[in-house]
Each structure stands twice: as C-alpha cells, then as structure tokens.
Design a binder for these strands. Structure first.
Lengths: 308, 308
DNA sequence: GTGAAAGCGCTAACAC
DNA sequence: GTGTTAGCGCTTTCAC
C-alpha cells in the first residue's frame, strides 16, 4: 500500500471502506501463477471414517493452517485410480507439498509422478525417496509384547493387517524379537477384516489353539476383535488379553478400555508439517530425512494377568 | 489436440512420450484464472476428531470427487478467527462453492463475506440465505421420544448441546411435542461437555431427580453419558435408558450398542454436493432451497422397558 | 520513491 | 479447420 502524504487520510479511508464494502479480495490464483509457488498442501489419507486417519487429518489441517498453508484432502480408500487422480490434481494445482498419511496404493506410479517435482513427506508410512515421519514402531511392538509377556502370557498371537506396510512389519518384528527372547513361539495371523464374520472365526480359532493374548497392529482392528470376542462369549481380559496400537480417542472410553501403544498424533503432525514446510522453503535440502517419534504404553482394562 | 495428418504418427507419439516423460501437466491455476472459475470446493467442518464430522467429511470428499471437484477442508473447532481466515482464503482461492457442515461461529460475518459471491450450501445446519440440506430433525426428536414413551418411560430428560443450533432446537421441539401429548413433564438439561466431570454430575443429578431415560441430541454426547453412567454404577438400560442421534459407526459397536436416530450421512452428502454443483453450474437459480432427508430409528441395547 | 511494462501459463476469440 | 492474439489479475523489474 502506498502510504504517502499524497492522499488525505479521508480519501484513504474512503478507499479502504470501498474495498471492505465491495468485498475485494486479491486473487490468489493470479498471485500464485506469477510467483510460481502456492501455499497449498495435498494430503493423501486413507478413509476418513477410520478414526486414526480422521484424528491425523485434523491435526495436520490445524498444523498446516498454523504455518499458513491450506490443505486439500483425498480419501484414498484403497482406490488406486482415485488416488492417482488426486495426485495428478495436486500437481495440476501446483501444490507446494504433498503429505502421505497412508501408503500409496501404487508407490511406483506415485513416485514417478511426484519425485523431484514437489516435496513430499510420509507420515506413519514408509518411503525410499521422501522424508519419513514415523513412530518407533518396532519399539512399540516390543513394548506391547513385553507387556503381555510380563503378565504371564505364553501363547501370544500377533494379528497383522492385510495391508502389510512397514509400520506393520516393524511392529511384528518387535513382537517376534520379544517372543524369541522369551523362548516363546510366534504366531502371526493375517486377517482380512473387510469380510463380515471374519473377526469371529479368526478370534475363535486363535483361542481354540490356546492363545491367551492378542497383539493387534492397530486399535481399530483391536476393537473389532473385542467386539467379536464379546459375541463369542470370550471374556476380555479374563480369558483373552487384547492390546492394540494407536490409542484412538474411542479406545479410552470406559466400555472399550483398550490397552494400547499410543502414537502421539499431534506430535506426528507437527513434525511432519514442519519437515514439509522446511523442504518447501528450501531450508532443508539433500537426501531424505527420517524422523522418529517415541511411543508410549497405555495400560487399560483389556489386558490382565494370564491365569494359571 | 490437433489430430491432423500434418504430423506423422511417429512424431505424434514421440511428443506424447516426451509429455509423459517430462511429466508435463497443464497449470490449473492459469486455466482457472482465465476461465474465471475453479473446481475447488471449500468445506467448513467442526473438528474432524468428532466422528460425526469425520464421517461427513469423508462422504463429502468422495461425492465431490465424483463430480470432479476438489475439496479444501478447515476444522473450525469453534475457533472464530480461524474460521474467518479459512473463509477469506476460500474467497481468495475463488472456490466454486462453499459447504458448511457445522454452523459458522460468526454467521453475520460469514454471510456478508460470501453471500451473493459464491454458492453456499449448509448441511446438517441452518441458514436464512443459503441452500439447506438437513434431516427431519423434529421428526427424529419425535421418534426418539416416542420410542422411550412406548417403553413406558414417564420421566424423560432431553440433553441439549451447549451449541443450541437449529438441529438441536428441532429435535427438542419433537421431544417437547411428544411429552406434551403424553401429558408428561419436559425436562431440558443443557450441559457443557467440554469441562471434565460435568457428565458425571449431570447424569447423577438427572437420575436422582427420578429420570429413567435420557434423549441426547447427538451420539457423541450420548456415549459420554453412557461412560459417566458406567462410572457411577448406573446400569444401562436397566436403570437408565439412553437414546442418541446420528448413528455414528462406533454407536454400532457391541459394547456401545446405542439406540439412536440415524442420519443418513451418505445421502446428506450426496444431496448437499448435488445442490451445490447445481448452483455452481447455474442449473438452479433463485431463492434458497431446502432439502429434507428422512431419519430412521435404530434400536439397540441402550434402551429398554421402564421397570415398574 | 513512483509508475509503466513485462510476463506467469493458460483459454477464447478472432482472423485467415 | 488452423495459427495468432489478447488478456485473466496479479508481482516484479526496470526506468524515471
């Protein structure tokens, strides 16, 4: 604005009033076009009806806004074409950066589309070429399994996600390490939770085979297992201990009371958005950076001493 | 594309290859600038860590994508300045339309900012000047209360949200109508769920005053009440029936088992996005339109016959 | 300091 | 049809 003495204060305020009244707003599109940079972030997130993603999305949006960035969201929903469409749109919009909250369904395509073109950060998931912000998933797996072992459980099953991503693998590795150390036999169950009734049969099988505890790769799955156990009349935690991973808001409800490994979602979002913004501003250059955020064991009612 | 015989097929495919290889993508900003229209939608949504908003956000994003529109989200979080910032940003971005999923915290400011400038649809909330897509909230209130009355309850309390929006009022009106008709005394409790321990004292008070049933204005609140009742040792539904509103995914969990009035979230999103797109394309003109979507009673375990 | 001019990457309108 | 041109609304540069 030209604040010279050229115009009287009156004229100036009249102009300002007019701007207010007419609701004039500078055109961001034009500015961004000429400046060759935007303040838009593209966020790829698994379905928002999964509370973990919803909670992450919320934190990311808040954090981005705090940095002056606007967020465009896409529920990938495991739908590869939709994901590619969104990714291409982000490029067309010349987003300043991209945030993956869940693994791309077509990692190679995603990579060739965006690598070296727009800064990208992977939160809660893995990548060979972009910055990664993750919890210490192996440590979490260790803590979860150790918790169960220290409660006297000997037959502990690990329930893995059908989407076998890095987080899942690391948690499983933590599990396997503790089991080996304790000279216990590992038992990994991969279940497809999409199909109805699968939880029931899987839990029932697992218990029939003698398991007294289950470590599930995420809370949302754990809650389904608890639901199944309830239906089957299997008492939790008396007959079966269940521990999850994530610490969703709903996991803390009295009726759910899920013991779990907490992922600090706000912290993850903060680190991820900061990392992305640093890349965008060019304050960080060079090879991919990895950020690891610590996890925490939250003990609630779904785990108890093994009887006998 | 110029598909004349001017160039050989070979040349053409070479060019196309180059486009692919270099990852050329047309600049949406430039196109939108010259076309004077965008395919971006701005969505104002209460905090995404509230499952109702998360579920709505997901449906809206999916539906928008199906119409070829991109969504920018803002968690209002009841934070008026953040909301205004987002709204102004949407205008700066020249969004094609705006969707309110929760009431603006500053309705007047919001109105003067966007009215007659960009098409706006209010889903699940109310407006005097924009299109509205809502459930039949009064009918829902009627159904919920009728359900409790028909179970033999005489002292039924209505738990209202501190944010006394139109949806809340309509549900309350439905409640009041049924109570009057049944010659029962209404009892409306307004509680501020933000403060800790409030649920406990409020529930305890309500039961002490003789209530055997509570109708809460939303499931998320109802679940908190159930949690409180559990802590207080009040058995649900034996001593206290609880019915909510929304039908969140988590309300259907065995351990929650909340009787509720379902808002069809997918349908709401479809109608809302269609209405908005119609306005954007100019296929609908003139005064605000109201769309009403029917609700449905879902009976689960949190309500039962009144004893005595 | 101030004002004019160039140009960001597209689309639409217009001659040819 | 096909090639050229103007211009969307800004920022930046460069004379003055």
């Amino acid at each position: 604005m030209h604040r010279s003495g050229r115009f009287t204060a009156e004229t100036e305020s009249q102009v300002l009033d007019a701007i207010q009244k007419l609701g004039f707003r500078p055109n961001v599109l034009a500015r961004q076009l000429v400046q060759q940079r935007t303040t838009t972030l593209g966020v790829m997130v698994g379905a928002l009806d999964n509370p973990f993603y919803a909670e992450m999305a919320m934190q990311i949006e808040r954090e981005s806004a705090a940095h002056g960035f606007h967020t465009m969201f896409c529920n990938t929903y495991g739908d590869a074409p939709a994901e590619i469409w969104a990714l291409e749109s982000y490029l067309d919009y010349r987003v300043a950066g991209i945030l993956f909250v869940s693994n791309p369904s077509e990692p190679k395509r995603a990579r060739q589309l965006i690598e070296r073109r727009v800064p990208t950060v992977f939160v809660t998931c893995e990548s060979e070429w972009g910055d990664v912000v993750r919890c210490d998933d192996e440590e979490g797996g260790l803590m979860a399994t150790q918790h169960l072992v220290s409660l006297g459980h000997r037959r502990i099953a690990y329930f893995s996600d059908p989407i076998d991503d890095a987080a899942n693998q690391d948690r499983q590795r933590g599990y396997a390490k503790v089991m080996r150390k304790a000279a216990l036999q590992s038992s990994v169950v991969r279940w497809d939770r999409k199909s109805a009734g699968v939880a029931d049969t899987t839990v029932s099988e697992t218990v029939r085979h003698g398991a007294t505890a289950i470590f599930t790769t995420d809370d949302y799955g754990a809650i389904e297992l608890v639901d199944a156990a309830d239906r089957l009349g299997i008492n939790i935690p008396r007959q079966l201990s269940v521990i999850g991973f994530d610490d969703l808001i709903m996991s803390g409800l009295g009726r759910i009371g899920l013991t779990t490994i907490r992922q600090p979602k706000m912290r993850l979002a903060q680190v991820a958005v900061s990392a992305l913004v640093d890349r965008i501003k060019g304050q960080v250059k060079g090879p991919p950076v990895r950020h690891v955020v610590p996890v925490e064991l939250i003990v609630r009612g779904s785990t108890a001493k093994a009887n006998g």
